[in-house]
Amino acid sequence: MTVSVAFEKARAEGRAALVGYLPAGFPSVAEGIAAVKAMIESGVDLVEIGLPYSDPVMDGPVIQRATEQALAGGVRTRDVLHTVEAVSGAGVPVLIMSYWNPIEKYGVDAFARDLAAAGGSGLITPDLIPDEAEEWLAASDAYQLDRIFLVSPSSTDERIAMTVAHCRGFVYATAVMGVTGARDSTSSAAPTLVSRVKAAAGNLPVGVGLGVRSGAQAAEVGAYADGVIVGSALVSALADGGLPALRTLTQDLRSGLTA
């Protein structure tokens, strides 16, 4: 299933798609799978499974701690693929979000093959820019996987155009200059960035991430973006309140988009 399914469904309902992130293996592989399933039942349109990595330079404290805990618990790359396999039949597209070295170590082509075999839709690459992605471009074509690169408020128009041209599925717009983490107010740079990206993206959906933590914020972002990406707030909910809190927040985020 490609991620376009999720965006088309949301578009048909006149709203933005809700994209939910959780790391695999947190708090354990089995509980992580249960959490993703709960998130899907509570209304996310698209799932990002984080691959825990020892040096997560794009992540703020919440996701750092969760992925550290997952690694300390012994999570392996194959557990991440297993997590994808376990949730990919639940009716929404499933992506992996991973720093580049674990993919390169696994073997780019082998990873693409196994991700596709697990029912995964594609890969979000926070520290891989299209300029360095030759092998991944070929592998994602070979296995028909979506590939989501990031754009940022500091990206030039030339880089936005180049990045968008290499994306498939959607474009990930990082709304703020900074690392992941929930913020009280959403970024004022985001609407400008989204309109710049849309000018280059044609029909490709634009998802906005970094900072969203409530239904009200989701509604604000959903007014101008095709997808609202939520990570740290969901991880915090799961860490602090378990599945009930995760469900409550997911429903709140989703109702923010439906209202």
Binding site: V57, W100, S154
Partner: peptide
């Protein structure tokens, strides 16, 4: 070598 960093740093 090369650049394996978030896009946000490329401009800098």
């Amino acid at each position: 070598g090369g650049r394996f960093v978030p896009e946000a740093l490329i401009a800098a």
